[in-house]
Design a protein around this nucleic acid. Structure first.
Lengths: 185, 185
DNA sequence: ACTAAACATGTATACATTGACATGATTCGT
DNA sequence: ACGAATCATGTCAATGTATACATGTTTAGT
């Protein structure tokens, strides 16, 4: 499947980048649906180079500090274009440890269950607020052909996802309070 | 972290099960937020046995077909109880290939983009309908102490998640139609 | 002059996960 | 009696991912 390959190629279509810059991209908006740290990125870039999907040239900062700036090749663009066009079956639903906890939550007394839910809620609210702040920077919907359109869509998706998760937690809290039990299990 | 360990222990608290039965559980509701196939489950059960978290006894069907029925030990219950009680920081947002595609969707012409979105939409609608049919079986909210309460919460969560994903896709379709471009990139 | 943060690239080890390979028994329908 | 579906358990190789190890430079602030 090699999704990381296409994530990197997609970034390099926008502009040539170093491995370090690619890693940074993954820690901004992109992290809302994809992530890789540098220990995965550098080997992948090496592989992409040997496959002819990218080429690099070395830039020097200061006296000796080298950075490899990678550019996507025609072969890379062609491969990426085929990938992005391809219909795809639904992935398996992503794993979610908190949902796993809630699935087994009958093993908890009401107090503990609600504590866990409130804690999780707070974290999602914080994330939501961060996302909303980033979203405020878009004063209008970017043109569908600009590469900021993709950023806009996934950021909107991330906000909706967080709002929905919070709504689910609220339902869980409500049901737990409505329906108290004396002792667990 | 060993989430699979706790997923298995949680199931075994409900009742003793064979590896085969555990694998089956992962392909029903549980698959909405966790999954493992038998090639992961059997080794994990072996490990849990050697750690003293579970024990098994062999059942024979017919003449010779052996099945190992695993039972959780006191040590296993204690370990699970500590785990379920523990507060947890948010996981990294799960990877989502379709969102990755949409992030790079400025490389597509409007027609292709909408085709991909419609295709994905259909698949989510199908999944949603399946989930709703399962949900109809709950004529009332199960008691918070019954082990069907967890099933109920995560099933409700899965329905909300699918509805929300479809709403996001609809927004993407709307923005793509509102904001057409002549040629990609 | 010093220092902290950011720039920059790599490797290694362990763990998690997938899909294929491998084998065979039992049950249910026709 | 036959065949298909289900029951049942395991290993292996490849891939993917996380965390730590490892090293050194440059820049911006004080």
């Amino acid at each position: 499947m090699r999704a990381l390959k296409y994530a990197i190629l997609g970034l390099l279509i926008k502009r040539p980048m170093t491995g370090y810059e690619i890693a940074k991209e993954f820690s901004y908006e992109l992290a809302e649906f994809w992530y890789a740290n540098h220990s995965q990125i550098y080997p992948e870039l090496k592989k992409l180079t040997s496959e002819g999907h990218v080429v690099f040239n070395i830039e020097i900062s200061g006296d000796i500090l080298e950075a490899k700036r990678y550019t996507i090749t025609d072969k890379g663009i062609k491969d990426f274009t085929q990938w992005i066009l391809k219909d795809e079956n639904l992935q398996r639903t992503p794993k979610d440890i908190f949902r796993l906890r809630m699935y087994f939550s009958n093993n908890l007394e009401v107090g503990s269950r609600i504590h866990l839910l409130e804690n999780q809620r707070l974290q999602h609210v914080n994330r939501l607020n961060t996302l909303k702040k980033i979203f405020e920077q878009y004063l209008e919907v970017p043109s569908a052909s600009s590469d900021r359109f993709g950023d806009f869509l996934v950021l909107r998706g991330a906000i909706m996802r967080e709002e929905n998760y919070i709504a689910w937690i609220d339902e869980c809290i409500m049901y737990s309070k409505e329906n108290p039990q004396t002792s667990p299990k």
